[in-house]
Simulated assay, not measured.
Amino acid sequence: MFPRCRPYHTYSERLLQDVPHLKNNRNLTERIVDKIILQLNRVYPQVLSNKEAEKFRNLKTPVRARLADLLKHLQRKGERECQEFYRALRNNADTVYSTLPSRRHRNSSDPLEISPDLEKMILNDRGPVFFLACFSVAAGLALIMYYNHPEVKSPDSAKKVLGFSAVGFGRQIRNILISFLEETSNL
């Protein structure tokens, strides 16, 4: 069986466990670390002052050393700063965030995290074809409801609807709709 870890009650405790992983993670590039620092500098209320942000963005210092100093600094500052760090990490390096040791062996719920069941409901794996099919059904129902309205029973109004709907489509579909309208007007 897997070893059971005690649940983390604070972000400071989580950060304490995640520091070795974060220091050795090669996915945390200089660009990503700079983005995290900038987000911590710009969030309200400010987690890092402008002077602190400049210190941690110093290009003369290696990225790993800057990251280690940043993590120590955040642990000294407090709980809210550690929480904002996790939020910045998730926004800028989700792959790193998802591989953190504190996330792998967790029993408590994280306010930043969505449960896997809820995530499947929000982001289904059906893809763009499913979306287009649903959109087409909705658009078709809207056209049927519009066409069945008593004031819109004339054939000219149906041509207007198809003519205006052709504007939003690509060139090939637009040509097909316009040729259909021309053929029906000749009949």
Score class of each variant (00 low, 15 high):
61 T>G: 05
114 I>T: 14
55 K>E: 13
15 L>S: 01
13 E>I: 03
17 Q>Y: 07
4 R>Y: 09
115 S>V: 08
134 C>V: 08
109 S>G: 06
43 V>S: 11
167 V>Q: 12
129 V>F: 08
132 L>N: 11
12 S>Q: 05
101 P>K: 00
126 R>K: 14
162 L>C: 13
172 Q>L: 13
84 E>P: 03
28 L>H: 05
127 G>I: 02
141 L>G: 12
107 N>F: 15
15 L>V: 06
111 P>K: 04
62 P>R: 02
169 F>Y: 15
150 P>M: 00
177 L>Q: 02
102 S>F: 03
94 D>A: 06
34 D>N: 12
42 R>V: 02
154 S>L: 06
121 M>L: 14
171 R>D: 14
155 P>A: 02
53 A>N: 09
176 I>Y: 10
80 R>G: 06
13 E>P: 05
59 L>D: 12
140 G>Q: 09
7 P>V: 01
125 D>R: 12
66 R>K: 08
172 Q>S: 15
104 R>D: 15
163 G>T: 03
10 T>F: 07
131 F>V: 11
144 I>Y: 14
178 I>T: 09
64 R>M: 09
75 Q>R: 13
39 Q>W: 09
59 L>A: 09
177 L>R: 04
162 L>S: 03
120 K>T: 06
30 E>Y: 03
156 D>H: 07
118 L>S: 12
174 R>P: 08
56 F>S: 00
78 G>H: 08
108 S>M: 07
13 E>K: 02
173 I>V: 14
114 I>H: 05
115 S>E: 13
72 K>R: 06
58 N>C: 15
182 E>Y: 06
175 N>M: 04
109 S>F: 04
104 R>N: 05
4 R>E: 10
116 P>Q: 02
118 L>I: 15
104 R>S: 11
137 V>H: 08
142 A>F: 13
179 S>K: 08
13 E>F: 03
117 D>F: 03
140 G>I: 09
42 R>S: 14
70 L>G: 08
28 L>W: 00
146 Y>K: 06
115 S>I: 11
62 P>L: 00
39 Q>S: 15
177 L>C: 02
155 P>R: 09
120 K>I: 09
132 L>T: 01
123 L>A: 10
48 L>C: 05
125 D>H: 05
152 V>C: 05
49 S>M: 04
36 I>L: 02
172 Q>C: 05
111 P>R: 08
81 E>A: 05
162 L>E: 01
7 P>L: 00
111 P>Q: 06
27 N>R: 15
98 S>M: 12
104 R>M: 12
26 R>V: 10
31 R>S: 14
124 N>I: 03
1 M>S: 14
123 L>H: 11
25 N>E: 13
153 K>G: 14
71 L>I: 04
148 N>Y: 06
14 R>V: 00
47 V>W: 01
41 N>I: 04
101 P>N: 01
61 T>L: 03
124 N>C: 12
137 V>S: 13
123 L>N: 08
69 D>I: 00
99 T>M: 12
14 R>Q: 10
6 R>A: 07
79 E>C: 09
161 V>T: 10
19 V>M: 10
2 F>D: 13
81 E>D: 15
136 S>D: 03
145 M>C: 03
31 R>Q: 14
3 P>E: 08
82 C>A: 07
119 E>M: 12
123 L>C: 05
167 V>H: 14
165 S>N: 15
159 K>R: 15
55 K>F: 14
160 K>M: 14
85 F>K: 01
91 N>T: 07
